[in-house]
Write a protein that binds this DNA or RNA. Structure first.
Lengths: 346, 346
DNA sequence: ATATTCCATGAAACCGGTTGCATGGAGTCT
DNA sequence: AGACTCCATGCAACCGGTTTCATGGAATAT
């Protein structure tokens, strides 16, 4: 049995012998000092300090079943929405003394499942963001370890939902007031809860304002996919588009510019998440998803549930509001047409 | 002893009994299959799979002294450079069976130090990206656990360096060929190794081509800081700028557009990292830093060093090349002047 | 003074793996 | 056929903590 990096690191037994007490007493001096005489505690802590003893977290975890770690599983860390979420979550966990594992699933359900299985023993609970996985599988994992999902609505499972319905409704109203009569909603991926919620909100608000809404499915929530959707959007006669996230919206800015069309002069855009919105040019009108807060609140929900014994079935809804910036303007009259309708091959 | 969340999780002894072998055999079937008959391995793995057995990483860590975890410590996960790095690192670690802790230091040395200390017991090694910390402190931590730094050049410590010198030299030559005679380098943060390296490369290449180079310090490598630097850059009479990273360059596009100036018509820009470069408009000419690869190689370096017994003092240099896109063009003649020189308050 | 309660402490059995050493059956050599 | 290797497998002692239960001395009650 090789023992790397262990040179001279004192154990609880060494401290016990040195302090003239049993190892149980040393253990208690650290984990349950109230059980001991103040004098004993002081004596033990003094010897421990003198010897440079630090409790071994791994041994503790094996014995107690609690590791003091959580894991954050998400589809793609390079997506700014998840990056922001991660930042909020990691900071909140750290504040409460927990360390955070990171699992990037590369948008695949299989990888998600694997990480959830492999990390289960090492963590006290999971944060699962925008799962790409079957409900059944998620429930299976939730039964084994406390689990909070973000942006998926599963009854009886802890969840944090960013409700962008209001924001999208306001966005559609804004576009209506600006004179737009035909708009598009560009979403992806198809099965995602967030996408379905946003699509439905736009649909409903469109009906309310007497605006026609055309739904477009992008292959992925990516810049390229957004860029590639411009042709289809223009073909519908839309003069504005709302998108599932800011990255897609930014892609559409690029696609429009490729055609020599300007935003918002020729076409208006509304993104979602508000996560790169202020760094695009022009600055993107977007629905703020409070990503960092969502991450932090999800951690709080998870860690609170670790203390109480009860099941973890709380849900938390964070409303997202519209933030109006520079990509929404009056509808062009007449609507512009695609200067190169054939180059788009979607 | 409370045993939370353990319900029904099979142990090695259960599998052993079920498969009709000893626990040692089950253990070996997972960790040293070559020691056993292929038939035995197959039998054990089959029963293990049937029972849903997964080796308990914590128990293994306690016994071997190796946790199978590494930690990645970096200044800001929402910075796309680090996000890409993280993605490469996490994937490489996962491929070799290691799980990854994430530590976001919020750009502070203190947080960095804290995370390094707290996670030390739980990991086999650290990846420390763009440390904001004193060399002395880094060495202290490196003495305790294997550690690979990214983008900092410390003798006798494992390190991966993205050498963008060549890319910046090419960029300056390109600008020279395009007729630019006065250029700016916009960098941050001051002490960062990457920044110093890039600044020096631009300075040297400028001298070589007889171009005057003006150094500008941004407060942070952020969009806002880049935007705020535009006034200073224009005031020097520069017709082009190279920046420490793509985010700053994108900020400058915004700042120039604010003034009604176009890129590259009125001003040329070269970013670095090539990480959001293709998603800006116009697409950014940038020096590719191969971020994901750097992360992956750093992981390989770290994990390889875990196998050999020797000290970890290898260094790996990844050259970054110039990728020419749409933000570099012929120098305007005469150089444009700042349409609103007083609004800039830096 | 004796019986009773209380509580600080210790002994030892865990947690779930790994691994040094012993063992015995098959294969090889003479 | 008998002696000798060889090696797949098993036994049991770890890794470093936590926790149950027993214990005995002091404090309290009778």
């Amino acid at each position: 049995m090789t023992k790397p990096q262990k040179a001279g690191r004192p154990t609880i037994r060494i401290v016990a012998k040195e302090a003239g007490v049993s190892q149980a007493t040393v253990s208690r001096a650290f984990s349950q000092p109230d059980m001991l005489t103040p004098a004993t505690v002081a004596k033990v802590l003094a010897t421990a300090k003198r010897l440079g003893y630090v409790p071994n977290q791994i041994a503790r975890a094996l014995s107690t079943g609690r590791s003091g770690n959580i894991a954050l599983i998400l589809p793609d860390v390079t997506n700014p929405f998840f990056a922001a979420l991660m930042r909020g979550a990691q900071a909140a966990a750290h504040k409460r003394g927990y360390a955070t594992f990171l699992g990037d699933t590369d948008e695949t359900a299989a990888q998600e499942d694997l990480l959830l299985t492999k990390l289960a023993v090492q963590v006290d609970g999971f944060l699962l963001a925008s799962p790409r996985q079957s409900e059944e599988n998620i429930r299976k994992h939730a039964a084994r370890r406390p689990l909070v999902v973000i942006n998926r609505d599963l009854a009886d499972i802890g969840r944090v939902l960013v409700d962008t319905t209001g924001g999208f409704r306001d966005a559609v109203r804004l576009l209506a007031e600006l004179g737009h009569r035909r708009i598009a909603y560009v979403g992806a991926p198809r099965g995602s809860w967030s996408n379905q919620q946003r699509a439905a909100a736009v649909e409903a608000a469109g009906a309310e304002h007497g605006i026609s809404v055309h739904q477009i499915d992008a292959v992925r929530p990516s810049h390229e996919a957004g860029q590639a959707c411009v042709g289809e959007a223009l073909a519908t006669g839309a003069t504005a588009a709302l998108t599932v996230d800011d990255v897609v919206a930014q892609g559409m800015i690029a696609g429009l510019s490729d055609r020599g069309l300007s935003v918002p002069g020729d076409f208006s855009l509304v993104g979602c998440d508000n996560v790169i919105a202020s760094t695009t040019y022009p600055q993107l009108t977007s629905v703020d998803a409070h990503c960092a807060e969502a991450g932090a609140r999800a951690v709080d929900l998870l860690l609170d549930s670790l203390l109480e014994e009860g099941p973890l079935d709380n849900s938390l809804v964070i409303p997202g509001e519209l933030i109006v910036r520079g990509t929404t303007g009056p509808a062009p009259n007449p609507p512009i047409s695609d200067p190169r309708p054939t180059t788009d091959t979607r």
